[in-house]
Each structure stands twice: as C-alpha cells, then as structure tokens.
Design a protein around this nucleic acid. Structure first.
Length: 492
DNA sequence: TCTCCCACCTG
DNA sequence: TCAGGTGGGAG
C-alpha cells in the first residue's frame, strides 16, 4: 500500500515529503463538484512519476523552533514577507519534464484566535475566508532539472490583510491560523496544463502553520524573528531591553517594550506558559495514511474554548501531509471572475472549460475584482510566471520553458470545505490536530488561453474529524471555493 | 486591533 | 548608493 511506499523521513532536520501514489479509486464525485477520481499518472517513466517527487522543507529546524513557540506571521496592508521563508528542496522529478511549483495558504481551521494569558486561545468563529490566492513560483514552469538544481524559494511571497490588495499578495485574516501548502504541477507537453490528465501533488509541512497577526503577540516569536531574520538585525541586543529603541528615544537606559512587560508579567504570574506548550498541544493523532504522515498523539478538539497554548504541536517527528494524483477531466466548471482582463487577445477561445465555478454558496466578493493582468503585472508578486521574455531568475537558458505559460492566478479559499465521499476515499485523511481540524480550500488552476486546462487542484487539508465523521459531513453542495489561476499558453 | 512612520539593516 | 525588509512606538 501507499503507506508503505510513502514514508515520512527526517533528514537532517528537514521534512521529507514523498509523494504517495495516486489512489486507486474510481468513484464519481462529480455530483459533489469535486475533482473526479484521480488516476494513476500515465507515465512511461514510472520512477519519475509525480508521486515519486520528494520535497524537503528547508530550514526545518528553524521552522520547528517557531512552531514550538507558535509561529506568527505579520500581515500588513502593503504586504509582508514570511519569516522563516518557505523554501524547499525537491528531488525525484523528471529532469526534462516541466513543472509548475506554487503555494497557497489555506485556513487551518475555522476559528479566530486571541492571545491571552501568554497563549493562543480560540476566540470565536473565523471570518469568512478570503478568496484564496496562489503564489506561483516565478521560475514556473521549469524543468525538473531546474527545480532540483537548487533550493526552491518562495521568500518573496507576501501576506496582506488588505482584502482589496492589488499586488497579488496572499490575503489573510488577522488572528487566524493558516497552513501553507506546496503544489507541484506537471506542465509537460504530454501532460500539459491543457491536459485533461494533469498530474500534480501537494505537500504540506505542518511546522509551517502560523497565526497571522498585525503585530506580534508572543514575545518568544518576536525574539526568534529578531535573532534569525537578518533584516531585523537592528533589533538585536540586550534581552533586558531594546537598546535600539532606547537610542531612538534618546535614552541611555534600555526601554522595555509593552509587549515584553505584558509577557513578563504574565510569565511571572501565570505559571501557564510552560506547561501549555508541553502538554495540550504536544499530542495529536497518529496519522499514517496514503497521503499523510504524522507521528504524534491526538489533540483535544479545538472547538472548545480550551487554551491552545502559545505553541503548536512539537511532538511530531515528520509532520507533513501530501497527496498526489493525476487529475482527470473534472466535471467542475467554475467561472473565472477575472477572466475579462485576460481575454484581451483570445477571449473567444475562453470557454467554460477554462473557468471554475464551484457550487453556489460561497462566492467571494473579490472574485469579481478585476484582478488580472494589470494587477498582477509584477513578477515580484509572483502571481504569475513564465512571461514571455522573462528569465525566470536563475533558470538557465536550457531550462527555461518556452514562454508558453502565463500563470496569472486567482484562487479562492473555501472557509470550511467539505469532502465528498469520493474525496474521502481518495484522500483518506485521518484525524488531525485541533488547530488543523478543518479542511482547507480546494484550489484550482485554470489555464487561460489554452483550450485544455488543468482544472482543479482538489487539495483539501485533513479534517480532524474521524473519517467516519467526514463521510457523514458531506453536504449536498460544497461551499464554493474558487480560484482563478490563469495559465496562458502562447502559440498553442 | 490596526495603521503609519521611524531608524536600522540587508543585499 | 539605494530600494526594500525589519520590529517598535505613537496614536
């Protein structure tokens, strides 16, 4: 079975994600608006099937440090980078096959959090999810040789809380928990974007989960950022006070920030911070399935108002989840709200096939936002890649794809998507830690000008509910989730 | 809780 | 040299 094949491996501090083989299932989920049954990738080079791709999280030890303290990521109106940055090392790709690497960040659960008594607590129901956006690596598409040659860095990805963000940054809600994901999409000619058999796989590193904030809540996180982020070097100094701030204020003595005061008061009186980190969250489900690897013990249900502590689970050795399959002709036909700006030249070629429309209930308001070519014009924003004439960073000339793809993207995240039966079978997610207890979005990638697209990336996060619960939870219609990821084929 | 601005820093 | 990435403080 795939469990045997796919094993989570700790490799010198890195998390390894080995793609599991595609589920050998054949149910029809079209009525649920879900991707149709994944099939075994038709690949003449079995050793280089997409499910054999391994992905290692770079700087895993650093990520783990943050994770144990409860990673926070600043989000600003202008967009803020993630730190640690998301970098991976990929192996097992076919050197000659072209792949698109992209990330998205999906809600880890449907809660809103507050930082209280030096720990994160559930503070209510999550705000409606933002329309999910994908961040396409600017080198995409590129050959496997290119991707494997060096670290794949998503460090330029930016997070924003501006719901009307025009820069293509990933939009998040503050005080919510999120999980970044990596998708590897085969963009080979024989299995191109346009193919109805687009193969892709998704890798999730649990230690990269974070809570979005507009200012740091946990002093431990602030210190970790300052100590490790070179751009924050100016804040390094005495732990007893921020000397830089002192200087700024013209004082000779250290100035202790409000945050430090608050947290130290809590620390000295609370007696809570330590044990929470070690206890409550250190456990969660042992998850070993076709696509998910985890080693830990179950977490309490986060539905309670129980303290979640200021740290994320730290017990898992190799916390990652992935699934991998070849997407067949989806029956989902989503409508691309932003198609117009992309249609300037070949609008007539765009048919429903190019757009997704998920079932009706959730229509993110921003989907109608004209967020296409103009707004995404900056490659820095990495909302598209492979523009004609662009060099794709370090990609060598040989590796550079023919400028056939324009990866403008648009995605919307489903706040609390449900799985269809078929999906459950295909992706047998196991119980999941409380703070990851909701399935995530079902991003889709929509080629733009190509008649054949890859339709969806049906990549839900695991549900903390049991599989049985999952099975029982399928609604007749899924909450909609849309995303627009427009791939433009030039001259095809 | 959030935004703006600042000085400091990297690359 | 300078554009842009930092966290903190003021409000």
């Amino acid at each position: 079975m795939l469990q045997e094949k796919a094993s989570a491996v700790a490799d010198e501090g890195m998390t390894v994600a080995q793609s599991g083989g595609p589920p050998e299932l054949a149910s029809d989920s079209s009525h649920l608006g879900l991707p149709t049954t994944p099939s075994i990738p038709q690949n003449n080079e079995p050793d280089q099937n997409i499910e054999n791709i391994k992905v290692v999280l770079h700087d895993r030890e650093l990520w783990k440090k943050f994770h144990e303290a409860g990673t926070e990521m600043i989000i600003t109106k202008a967009g803020r980078r993630m730190f640690p940055s998301y970098k991976v090392k990929a192996t097992g790709m076919n050197p000659k096959t072209k792949y698109i690497l992209l990330t998205d960040i999906v809600p880890a659960d449907d809660h809103r959090y507050k930082f209280c008594d030096n720990k994160w607590m559930v503070a209510g129901k999550a705000e409606p999810a933002m329309p999910g956006r994908l961040y396409v690596h600017p080198d995409s598409p590129a050959t496997g040789a290119h991707w494997m040659r060096q670290l794949v860095s998503f460090q330029k990805l930016k997070l924003t809380n501006n719901h009307l963000d025009p820069f293509g940054h990933i939009i998040l809600n503050s005080m919510h928990k999120y999980q970044p994901r990596l998708h590897i999409v085969k963009a080979d000619e024989n299995n191109a974007f346009g193919s109805k058999n687009t193969a892709y796989c998704t890798h999730v590193f649990h230690e990269t989960a974070f809570i979005s904030v507009t200012s740091y809540q946990n002093h431990k996180i602030t210190q970790l950022k300052i100590e490790n982020n070179p751009f924050a070097k100016g804040f390094r100094g005495s732990d007893e006070g921020d000397l830089r701030v002192s200087r700024l204020q013209g004082k000779d003595y250290p100035v202790i920030s409000k945050n430090m005061v608050r947290q130290r008061l809590i620390s000295s009186h609370g007696h809570l911070s330590g044990k929470l980190g070690a206890g409550v969250l250190s456990s969660h489900p042992q998850v070993v399935s076709h696509y998910q690897y985890d080693s830990g013990v179950p977490l309490p249900n986060s539905d309670s108002q129980e303290a979640l502590s200021n740290s994320f689970p730290s017990s898992r050795e190799s916390s990652l989840l992935y699934h991998c399959f070849k997407h067949r002709d989806s029956t989902r036909h989503l409508e691309l709200g932003c198609k117009r700006p992309y249609l300037d030249t070949t609008a007539s070629a765009v048919t429903d096939e190019h757009y997704f429309r998920s079932p009706p209930s959730y229509d993110p308001p921003l989907l109608s936002h004209p967020y296409c070519s103009e707004a995404l014009g900056s490659r820095e924003a990495c909302m598209y890649g492979g523009m004609e004439g662009e060099t794709g960073g370090t990609v060598g000339a040989d590796d550079l794809p023919v400028p056939s793809l324009n990866c403008n993207m648009w995605a919307s995240v489903q706040p609390c998507p449900r799985y269809g039966m078929q999906t459950v079978e295909a992706m047998p997610y196991q119980p999941f830690p409380a703070h990851f207890n909701s399935p995530a979005s079902v991003p889709s990638v929509v080629p733009h000008h190509s008649p054949s697209l890859f339709n969806t990336l049906g990549v839900p996060l695991p549900n903390s509910d049991s599989q049985e619960t999952l099975s029982n939870s399928f609604p007749s219609s899924r909450e909609s989730s849309l995303l627009y990821h427009c791939f433009k084929h030039r001259g095809t």
